[in-house]
Simulated scan of single mutants.
Amino acid sequence: MFCEVELLRDVAVLAENLDRNGVISQRSIITRLLEDLVKEKSSKDHGYFLAVTSLKNIGKGEVVDESGDIFFPVVFNCRTFLPSKGEILQGVVHHIFSHGVFLRCGPIKYAFLSARKMPNYHYVAGENPVFLSDELAKIENDIVVRFVVLGVRWIEKRRLVKKEFVMLASLVGDSLGPISLSGSDELDL
């Protein structure tokens, strides 16, 4: 689900960004804010940070004695993406295994659709494995699939996965399953 949230961040700007009059430009502060959000990527409470939609306030800067950095409190609105249980989404198949498939859904790289949650689909092994339904619908790599979210979990850090959401998906329900023959306009963060 897409949300619009108001956030507050302390943005650190290097003292070397001061102009001749000892002023830091608003552009330097905003640039640093955007760089920080790209590094942060997502949060457990708000989901993935997609876009800063408005800047509400930049507070008075405070100098930190040791580093010389100047910290500005910045209040802004941000569009986020946080899926929820029961929501209908679309994802692109990127890995197929005998026990299910992995989908990408916007910034979410790990949405697992178990073979047990694909009624009337059967695994067909081979060089390019697929799941084939009784009605001959095919789930293969790069196919867009409409699914329902069974669950969402936040992972702070586990092996290569850092600050990510993972989802469990299902095709149990009406109008769920493959909807096109090639990939979508997915967002890769």
Rank of each mutant, 00 (worst) to 15 (best):
D19W: 09
S98N: 13
L89Q: 08
I24E: 05
F72R: 01
T53K: 09
S43E: 14
I24M: 04
L18Q: 07
E40P: 02
E40K: 13
V63A: 14
E87M: 12
L33Q: 06
G86S: 02
P83Y: 08
Y110A: 06
G86A: 09
C78G: 02
L18C: 06
K39C: 05
Y110H: 15
S43A: 14
F71N: 09
G68N: 00
Y48C: 04
K41M: 10
L89W: 09
S84Y: 09
V74R: 06
G59C: 09
L50E: 01
S42I: 09
D65T: 05
F71R: 11
S28P: 01
G68A: 03
G59I: 09
E40R: 11
E35C: 00
V64Y: 12
S28T: 00
Q26W: 03
I29S: 09
V64T: 12
G59D: 07
G86L: 05
F112H: 13
I70S: 06
V74K: 08
I88C: 08
T31Y: 07
S42A: 15
V93F: 11
G86F: 10
V92A: 12
G68I: 02
S67D: 08
P107R: 07
H99D: 15
C78D: 07
I88N: 05
S84R: 14
V38P: 01
L34F: 03
L37P: 00
V93T: 13
F102A: 04
L55D: 05
R27P: 01
L37K: 10
R32V: 02
R32K: 15
G61V: 11
S42W: 00
V92P: 01
H95V: 14
G47T: 11
F72H: 03
V92F: 02
S28C: 06
C105T: 14
L37D: 11
I29E: 10
K109E: 15
L34S: 10
Y110G: 02
R104V: 11
Y110P: 00
P83W: 07
K109I: 01
A111H: 02
V92C: 07
L89V: 11
S84E: 14
S43V: 06
S43P: 00
F71V: 01
K41P: 00
N21K: 14
F102N: 08
S98H: 12
E35A: 11
E35T: 09
G91F: 09
R32S: 12
I30G: 00
S84A: 04
I58Q: 07
R79P: 01
I30C: 01
F49A: 05
A51Q: 12
F97K: 14
I70M: 06
F112L: 07
D65Y: 00
I108W: 06
L55C: 04
D45M: 08
I58Y: 07
I24D: 03
E16D: 10
V75Y: 10
S43R: 12
